[in-house]
Each structure stands twice: as C-alpha cells, then as structure tokens.
Design a protein around this nucleic acid. Structure first.
Length: 113
DNA sequence: ATTCTTACA
DNA sequence: TGTAAGGA
C-alpha cells in the first residue's frame, strides 16, 4: 500500500489543490499498478516495450508510472475490452490525450495573454 | 520483498 | 500471454 502522507489527516475535507498535488506527484511501481488496475505485469511490460506507454525516466532498473500513464493504461484496457486491437486502442488513447491537451492549450493562451 | 530479462509452453 | 528460472 502507498504510505500515508502528512496531509492525509485532512482527507475529511475536500481539497482540490491537495488532490492535484497528490496526483501530480504520484509515481507507482509496476506491482502496484498491476494490482490496482488488474492488468498483469507481463502486459504492462509488453506495452511499455512496444512504446505504447512510457515510464518515468529513471534511467534504468525499475518501471515507474505517473498519473498520465496510469490513465492511459486504464483507457487502453477499456478499449481492448471493447474489441480494439492493442495498437488501435493505444492510438485512440493517444489521439484523445492530444485532443484534450491541444484544446486546453487554446484556452490557456486566451486566458494567459 | 520486488522487479527484471529470457525463454518456452 | 502465463509462468518459471535465475540474477540484481
């Protein structure tokens, strides 16, 4: 299990900023990801080898995943269940991420200038 | 204890 | 893909 942080005692209070901070800092090992997403480590390694998902550049030894990658993993799994091939599912997910990112980038520009 | 690679079913 | 072996 993930260890408690000193902030967890505030869990009774809904705090968007804490949630965001937690998610952006969250980096998980393959074991935990496999356990929680219910996807075998074997598959996660395979997907990563094929470049479908990335690991936090820890130049070497162990595979660690961040929020975005875990999100992709979940989406890919969903599409696989719907019948898409692994490649198709991965491409679809990438497209979605790109669309969302580029869209919000436009909003950012308007609200930042 | 956990993850990694390799290899074979 | 699942699993076992052997090393880190």
């Amino acid at each position: 299990m993930a260890k408690k942080t000193s902030q967890n005692h505030k869990l009774s209070t809904i705090n968007i900023l804490d949630d965001h901070e937690f998610l952006t800092k969250l980096i998980v090992g393959i074991g935990e990801v496999a356990e929680i997403t219910n996807i075998p480590q074997r598959k996660l390694r395979y997907w990563q080898e094929k470049g479908l998902i990335k690991t936090v550049d820890e130049s070497g030894t162990t595979r660690r995943f961040n929020y975005l990658e875990i999100k992709k993993i979940l989406l890919i799994k969903e599409l696989l269940d719907e019948g898409f091939t692994l490649e198709a599912a991965a491409n679809k997910v990438e497209k979605r991420i790109e669309l969302i990112n580029s869209t919000f980038k436009k909003f950012k520009n308007r609200h930042t200038e």
